[in-house]
Design a protein around this nucleic acid. Structure first.
Lengths: 143, 143
DNA sequence: CAAAGGTGGTTTGTATTCCCAACTAATTCG
DNA sequence: CGAATTAGTTGGGAATACAAACCACCTTTG
């Protein structure tokens, strides 16, 4: 396998993994009245408090889409808005306790859904895989 | 790290990876007038010729959603329908040459977008990662 | 420091996506 | 053969998405 081939094969494997996990998340979301995008929003907010445009950029959607998305999530009591203290134009978004609880529950369900797949890997290989994924994704959104 | 912890950490890493790749795919799709779901459809059809309901189940959406989705993709000349020869109720979906060309181009763009991330991994670790991902996801859609 | 331009969000309008429920047609099973 | 299933489509209504227009606030510059 040449280095070029390994890039191709790895992109392929990453995309297939993504599709599989996305399918799982979509089903999980449907059971909880959440769209895939909403799940992604909650997942990102788990450990961040971005402004609205940052969130939109991270998710790859338009800021106007994000505005409505946050509207509905806010109406459901899952997230809240706050004016950014350093920039009066900006709006920070964060999880409410209810939102935190929900994402935590989803995460637990996700763990259960992925358990059979992960179980195919002995623990030491799991840690190896974690390390490799972390290396690949570390610096956040390049591009 | 206990085995239980490694499950948690791996789920986390897989989900974060999925979010990142999904963001990339969403942006890529937007540049080509494709929704994320349409990209997933094209991606699946790359090496399969499923019937409509299979496709819907795989993507985690309702078959009626899939019907319209295929309608629009068909109108754009990307996919085509064919009656299943063994079951007159069923409809097989497959990529047209134009669809094949498009998904190929998307794949190339995806490779370019992921290049900096993948570049952080030496070739032998890439192959290791490919192997691990294959092991985890091998048997297709369990659950 | 005031005007000009840039940036962050919201709103409006339109197309797409999605679920649900109802329906048709084909298959399977009793 | 008739009843129950299964595959797919259609129609209705909500959510999601982008683009464009807009307001408010920042930043830069003369």
């Amino acid at each position: 396998m040449t280095p070029e081939d390994s890039v191709d094969a790895l992109v392929d494997a990453l995309v297939r993994t993504t599709f599989q996990v996305t399918g799982m998340l979509t089903r999980l979301g449907a059971e909880n009245d959440l769209s895939l995008t909403q799940i992604r929003v909650l997942g990102i907010l788990r450990d961040r408090r971005p402004r609205l445009t940052e969130l939109a950029a991270y998710l790859g959607v338009d800021k106007s889409s994000m505005s409505g998305l946050i509207d509905r999530a806010e109406r459901r009591g899952l997230v809240a808005r706050d004016r950014n203290p350093h920039d009066a134009r900006a709006v920070d978004v964060y999880l409410t306790p209810a939102g935190q609880e929900l994402i935590q529950r989803l995460f637990a369900e996700g763990r259960r859904a992925l358990a059979p797949a992960i179980g195919r890997l002995p623990p030491e290989q799991r840690e190896q895989l974690i390390g490799l994924l972390d290396t690949v994704l570390e610096p956040g959104n390049d591009q």
